[in-house]
Computed example of a mutant assay.
Amino acid sequence: MSINVNSKIKPFKTQAYKQGKFIEVSEQDVLGSWAVFFFYPADFTFVCPTELGDVADHYEELRRMDVEVYSVSTDTHFVHKAWHDTSDTIGKIQYTMLGDASGAITNNFGVMREGMGLADRATFIVDPDGIVQSVEITAEGIGRNAKELLRKIKAAQYVAAHPGEVCPAKWEEGELTLAPSLDLVGKI
């Protein structure tokens, strides 16, 4: 069972690694600000560190946008710490790395690879009410792009702040939006 757009995230509680400390994180900690759940198959792999490092490079901008990042794999918080301590790319991560050894969070989001115990490469943008606003799932060999993630978050935040407006394809912050109406039908 997967979580789709407009679904509320399910309750969870887990151990995590963040900025040199082990912490406990639950869905209650997520509520109240925007969040990104960034699922990946496993620590100490190949495409995963490139993606996590890309998000780390944009973390300050995400925080300025009131977005917290939660990377998630089925590794433990201990493995996250070991990876953080041994990889220059992962060592620059300041966001929360959720341990999900039981697979509960990965299963709650519906991105567990059946029979493998590994998460799919999946991204969920969640609003301050815990409602999923965007879902992206890619195949194993296809890495994600943090700049596109930022663009999607900006669009989601804009739409949330401006009811009645929508962001067209390739919309960038500051560009024109659309106000759907009968008058626009067939004119775009």
Rank of each mutant, 00 (worst) to 15 (best):
V79T: 14
E24K: 07
W34P: 05
G110T: 06
E68Y: 03
F46W: 13
D120E: 15
H58E: 04
E68F: 03
V72R: 04
H162F: 10
E136K: 03
F38T: 04
A146T: 04
N4Q: 13
S73Y: 07
N6A: 12
H84I: 02
V126M: 03
R151E: 09
E172P: 06
E136I: 10
F124L: 06
L31W: 09
G53I: 07
A160G: 01
V79Y: 01
D66W: 00
A146L: 00
E60M: 08
W34V: 13
T14I: 02
D57S: 13
H80C: 05
P11L: 02
L149F: 01
V30D: 01
F124Q: 01
R64Q: 15
G143V: 02
I105W: 01
Y158Q: 05
F39N: 00
S26V: 05
S71R: 09
A155C: 08
V132I: 15
K152G: 11
K81M: 10
A56S: 14
D75K: 02
A16R: 07
R144N: 08
E172D: 11
F78S: 08
A104H: 10
K154G: 12
V126K: 02
T96R: 09
A179M: 14
F37N: 00
R144F: 09
E148V: 09
S2R: 12
P128A: 06
K152Q: 15
K21W: 08
V67E: 00
V55I: 15
F37V: 07
V135C: 13
A155K: 00
K187Y: 05
S73H: 06
S102K: 05
S33A: 07
F78H: 12
G130A: 08
R63S: 06
A104K: 15
V36C: 02
Q157A: 11
E24D: 14
V30E: 01
V47F: 13
S33G: 05
P128W: 12
Q28S: 11
T86L: 00
G32V: 07
M97W: 06
V111Y: 06
H80S: 13
S73G: 10
M97L: 14
S7T: 11
I131T: 14
I131K: 13
T177A: 15
E173C: 11
A104D: 14
L182M: 14
D43T: 07
P41L: 14
Y59S: 01
P11W: 03
T89N: 11
T89P: 03
A160P: 00
P11D: 09
L182R: 15
V30T: 08
K154W: 02
E173V: 15
